[in-house]
Write a protein that binds this DNA or RNA. Sequence first.
DNA 1: ATATATACTGTAATTATATACAGTATAAAT
DNA 2: ATTTATACTGTATATAATTACAGTATATAT
Lengths: 199, 199
Amino acid sequence: MIKITAQQQKVLDCIEVYIKETGFPPTRLEICNELGFKSPNAAEMHLRALEKKGVISIKSGSSRGIVLNNKIPDGYPVIGLVAAGSPTLATENIERNIQCDSSLFGSNFDYFLKVKGLSMIEAGIFEDDLVAIKKTTDVKNGDLVVARIGDEVTLKHFYRTQESIELRPANKDYSVIKINNSVSQFEIEGKGIGLLRTH
Amino acid sequence: MIKITAQQQKVLDCIEVYIKETGFPPTRLEICNELGFKSPNAAEMHLRALEKKGVISIKSGSSRGIVLNNKIPDGYPVIGLVAAGSPTLATENIERNIQCDSSLFGSNFDYFLKVKGLSMIEAGIFEDDLVAIKKTTDVKNGDLVVARIGDEVTLKHFYRTQESIELRPANKDYSVIKINNSVSQFEIEGKGIGLLRTH
DNA sequence: ATATATACTGTAATTATATACAGTATAAAT
DNA sequence: ATTTATACTGTATATAATTACAGTATATAT
């Protein structure tokens, strides 16, 4: 794991802001002016440290030759609800990528899950809708969750009662799944924070 | 209208490609190397011409101080369904902007309409959902359309019958709106090509 | 105990870069 | 007919910027 110091983070932030505002990276001196350093070598040393940690690249000999290595993700993967097995981010499970902002649904998310079946239709979630999933196990009552029971992956509303955990469909033709001690291999994969539908 | 010469376009393309590949703008000499010029002044003159035409800005005294003025659009506007009046793109009607790709829903669209009411609930369109609207009058039976009847703006399914045009809700508690000769000021604003929901 | 990383100041040299100036030539506008 | 814009070469220079070197000091790792 790469650990960045507070000062190095300041320098990195400074570079990002500078690029965002001007369209090109800052010089050592401009970093100094921004952060109050009195020697260009202060900026230089921070840049070297950031390069060593792989966060940036420095194109030697070029003015403003600072390259940010935090490559923008080329969209979010769309994953089908495979009948058996978890909706992993393995390449073979990715149907396509959708280019959108991480903040499209307010908070960050990890992938889109393509909905199979009609179990959530009363919640306005139709077949082939894409539900934005944030990988987490921190879920509250009423949350839309992606749960795995053995090899089965399902999208339901989460409710915790005194005796058990309930996965409730939003379709009166489907029945509630009750999770108790006899159910093994139960896991919350994540929660749905948004929905995307193409007509 | 700004007219750019073929050579100036080459220089502009060169700058765009260079920025895309390196993350920072080229120097005069680097432009020369890319395009085969033998004098830095060739690049300089092209840059001056491009600046004069407003396509770029040059930050005098800064190395690589070339700024592209073709600002990326800051997303798609979210427009509320105002009870009276059309959902225009006037600034006062824009609630916020959503940053996403134009191809998020397959084809291009113009704005997001924030849904009010429950008339389309059986089509999985809930209150406060955002429907991506493409401005067009070319609609087919079954399309989700934004229609304006006088001052009233509504989101419904479009059906053309022998006698009239029908705007059908997707909620049995609502009734079909029939458009016939007695209805004045009827207009199709656009059609819904996608949906965005935040949980 | 000694080395290594962090976190700087201060100075200086080399190189990278912008930019001015002097030309040449052609095409389009007034 | 004369100006103005385009489209360069070629040279020169001031300055912008990288980058090396010499220090100082503290914290953390081995």
